[in-house]
């Protein structure tokens, strides 16, 4: 690793300004997990790191806002989110997904903002949060904007964030009466990166689904909504025959990317199976 300058601005806006000024020579660092891995590999060789550790405390908090949505600061650690009573109570699927995300030490330091901004399709929370309808507030040197989380990722390790822009917080509608599940499929060690992840969020009455959101991750470059599979679920009673069609539709509407976790053909099979299982798991959830 090469030496670099470490800056510690006191406000998020100041951090954005510093990053905007330095451009590619600088990188933001939150929990620092992904950044350290890339620095060590020599993939990144920045002149400056802009630490977000000292910015305003409010960017680390988790709170319920006035319209009943959960606001999670971008610098909240994954472990804080996992252990938050509010999160467990209002969005239990998020706490469940976090339990199998990397390991305790990584969750202790990794931040939600970094987790999302890294744009690695193997991350576990984007599919869950997208399926729940979350949005992100982004702060830049000139101001801020809000966008659906579904629009954040532009490609493998790529976001739509402009130079100097930083994720400030995530706003996520609470689960409420919606039933949700996230299934992570690993094909090597149990705590491996996922070969694919499937998030299912359903509004259902008994076994009849009123609406469904299904999002797949890891098998594709960016988390992807499975709209055709979702459409099949709308307004119908769930049974094995229907689920078979849902699984098939899901496998047909995306083109999985083969990698060390499995070939594209295998991942298509997994997608079929895991979409069916995720819907079942969501229905079984509260």
């Amino acid at each position: 690793m090469k030496p670099f300058e470490l800056l510690e601005p006191r406000t998020l806006r100041e951090a954005a300004t510093l990053l905007h000024a330095a451009g590619d020579a600088a990188r933001p660092v939150g929990g620092g997990v992904a950044i350290m891995l890339m620095l060590k590999m020599g993939v990144l060789q920045p002149e400056t790191l802009v630490s977000l550790a000292s910015v305003e405390d409010r960017y680390s908090t988790i709170a319920l806002d006035d319209d009943g949505q959960l606001r999670i600061g971008a610098l909240a650690t994954l472990r804080a989110i996992e252990r938050s009573g509010l999160v467990r109570d209002r969005i239990p699927v998020l706490a469940q997904a976090l339990r199998r995300l990397s390991n305790v030490r990584v969750r202790n330091v990794a931040t939600l903002g970094g987790h999302l901004a890294h744009a690695d399709p193997h991350m576990d929370l984007p599919p869950v949060l997208i399926a729940l309808g979350a949005s992100v507030r982004v702060v830049g040197p000139a101001g801020e904007r809000v966008m659906p989380l579904a629009d954040l990722h532009a490609g493998y390790l790529e976001t739509v964030l402009a130079r100097g822009e930083l994720i400030a917080e995530v706003t996520c509608p609470v689960q409420g009466s919606r039933r949700a599940a996230y299934l992570k499929c690993t094909t090597r060690a149990a705590d491996d990166w996922p070969a694919l992840g499937v998030a299912a969020v359903l509004e259902a009455e008994g076994e009849v689904v009123r609406s469904a959101r299904l999002v797949v991750s890891a098998a594709t470059d960016v988390p992807t909504r499975l709209s055709r599979a979702e459409a099949l679920l709308r307004g119908v009673r769930i049974d094995d025959a229907l689920l078979a069609r849902v699984g098939e539709a899901a496998a047909a509407e995306v083109t999985p990317i083969g990698d060390e976790h499995g070939s594209a053909a295998y991942k298509r099979e997994l997608l079929d199976v895991y979409v069916r299982r995720a819907v079942r798991a969501a229905l079984a959830a509260r």
Binding site: L6, M36, L37, R105
Partner: peptide
């Protein structure tokens, strides 16, 4: 986990944590 240390009572991977 060979590099585990406790920082403010929280377990972290020392190899992925900047000294700062």
């Amino acid at each position: 986990g060979c590099c585990t240390v406790l920082v403010d009572g929280v377990a972290v991977s020392g190899c992925l944590s900047l000294a700062a």
